[in-house]
């Protein structure tokens, strides 16, 4: 059995106001892959991600993590397995210090203090943020906050990393660091983003969503190089894949 597998079967979800955000989504992501979920605004990307660790409960359909279907009883286990990096790091960082925030997950998992400290130190080192460990999170720059938010999740040693718009609001240098970091992970990575150049560098597979359904699922270069398909669904070809046009 592998914990690294994520499978979604005919997932449907409607918000309380009746908006149908997901209309029957199915896919399977196996061990160690890096998969991008792309689509225009309102395509259902964030809603889909929030189903993967039980933040939202599907109207119908199944989410399977490893070989366990997500149910109210299995959610705590799934949350240890699926690390979620939220779109806005300010939502994710709530303790008075960076170290306190990174230690929050391991402490809740009931680990002994020395192991909590070891996990905290190694997660902060992994993202290059050891120097800010005693600072309050709200005083960090956007890039530092993002890195610390990733550390808070790494400290829980998840098998699967789920990230919502990880490169938004980052300057080019911070974005580059993020890409290097994403490339260095061996986890199964699921990344929802509009940053298609990042997708080209990090992901091998792309799932294209529009209006709550999967409209394409395949190798990243094939989908991101298909200009008519992308234009039809509110996206455009990444610059590096655009055919040269006469000026």
């Amino acid at each position: 059995m592998s914990h690294h597998i994520v499978e979604v079967r005919d997932l449907r979800f409607a918000y309380p106001d009746g908006t149908e955000a997901l209309k029957g989504i199915s896919f399977r992501i196996s061990h160690g892959g890096a998969v991008a979920i792309v689509g225009g605004n309102g395509a259902g990307k964030s809603t889909l991600l929030q189903h993967l660790n039980g933040c939202l409960t599907a109207t119908s359909g199944t989410v399977i993590i490893g070989d366990t279907p997500l149910t109210p009883g299995t959610i705590p286990r799934a949350r240890r397995c699926v690390g979620m990096v939220f779109q806005d790091p300010d939502d994710q960082l709530f303790m008075p210090t960076v170290a306190g925030d990174v230690a929050f997950g391991p402490l809740n998992a009931g680990l002994p203090p020395d192991m909590v400290e070891q996990r905290t130190a190694s997660a902060l080192e992994r993202v290059g943020m050891t120097h800010v460990r005693e600072r309050p999170p709200y005083r960090l720059s956007a890039g530092e906050k993002r890195a610390v938010a990733i550390a808070t999740v790494l400290a829980m040693t998840p098998d699967i990393l789920v990230m919502d718009e990880p490169s938004s609001n980052l300057d080019p240098r911070a974005r580059r660091r993020l890409i290097e970091l994403l490339l260095s992970f061996e986890h199964t990575r699921i990344i929802a983003t509009h940053d298609l150049e990042l997708v080209l560098e990090v992901c091998t597979r792309v799932i294209l969503l529009d209006a709550g359904i999967v409209v394409a699922d395949g190798p990243a270069r094939d989908i991101l190089g298909n200009e008519p398909l992308l234009l039809a669904h509110g996206l455009e070809c990444p610059y590096s894949l655009r055919p040269a046009r006469p000026r």
Binding site: Q50, N53, C55, P76, R79, R80, G83, M84, F86, D88, D91, Q92, F94, A99, G100, A103, F104, G105, L107, N108, A109, P113, V116, E117, T120, T152, V153, M156
Partner: peptide, 18 residues
């Protein structure tokens, strides 16, 4: 969203200190 982020990291209502 803050609450969801706390739940995602195993918060169960008990405050634990390092």
């Amino acid at each position: 969203r803050v609450y969801r982020a706390m739940m995602a990291r195993g918060f169960d209502g008990e405050i634990r200190l390092v």
